[in-house]
Design a protein around this nucleic acid. Structure first.
Lengths: 156, 156
DNA sequence: ATGTATGCAAACCATTTGCAATGAC
DNA sequence: GTCATTGCAAATGGTTTGCATACAT
């Protein structure tokens, strides 16, 4: 059971929040839900359902795709996980706690997604109150051409 | 052939740009491509492929879905159309010229998408130079709960 | 005991692909 | 005439659904 370097309290905090949410909603505390959350909070960065599924297998914890989809929906609901849809038709997820708020640069040529941090921008958005809408989180996607594809284009 | 109130020059400008792009790339100038562009620039706001397909039928211009998908890709490429992926697994499109730059408020409960304009924010983003990336357009999606769903929740 | 959550397989549905026919050049 | 583009239908693949079984409460 090797763990990457991480603040152990983030995973613990996530578990506690899930616990609270399940109690509150009177949903059941199943081993699958905690195992999936644990895996998600053992990594950073983006991932897809397929990755999660295969990684669970490696950890010798059999879970069906159906359960993974159900659980991801649950985790998005209780704000422990963020869900993105970039250019391709696959949902991309990311843990919500312990990842600095960031934005995404998306290359329209190759689909690569680069994380982009700008505290000034974040502050700017946070300071705005939006009428008739309660923002939970936001997602600034900047589409364009990444440096790799710019180089490739010139070669042609 | 009734047209909604619109600046006629926007559609004309769009056509001219498509024309130029097709010439430049040595792609063929087919009736389908111009007809689809014409329909798109006869309306504002978001639409899906299915809408486009049915609307073309109404206009007595038979086009296959395959051609619509091909054409949309072309129009996104040459920046005459913007493509969005919100929460559902359907692509949502929008004409690029003549629509003020805006952002999106997306309700995570019901999926409703509200347009949101903030010139200050737009200016703020534009003033940033981003290294190693050439931005073409950006897309600020703010997820949260819309007022309708907030009301519904309280009723429960 | 009760009813929710899981696993499995089938169903769904937007999008993509292959190929023959059409038509732009 | 050549070859890109179209139309059609089949294939693809992520996600959802239905139902029997397992298990949290």
């Amino acid at each position: 059971m090797t763990h990457k370097k991480e603040k152990p309290d983030e995973k613990t905090r996530a578990k506690a929040l899930l616990d609270k949410y399940l109690s509150q909603k009177q949903y059941r505390k199943t081993a699958e839900r905690y195992a999936i959350l644990d895996l998600i909070y053992s990594n950073r960065g983006h991932f897809e359902i397929e990755w999660l599924y295969q990684e669970m297998e490696k950890q010798e914890f059999r879970v069906s795709k159906a359960t993974i989809y159900n659980t991801m929906q649950l985790l998005v609901e209780c704000q422990l996980v963020l869900k993105h849809q970039f250019t391709k038709n696959v949902s991309v997820y990311e843990r919500a706690i312990g990842n600095d708020l960031h934005h995404h640069l998306i290359c329209t040529q190759c689909g690569k997604v680069i994380e982009y941090k700008d505290p000034g921008l974040i502050q700017f958005i946070n300071e705005k109150g939006i009428k008739r809408f309660t923002p939970a989180y936001y997602n600034l996607n900047i589409y364009g051409i990444c440096s790799t594809c710019t180089r490739k284009k010139k070669k042609k």
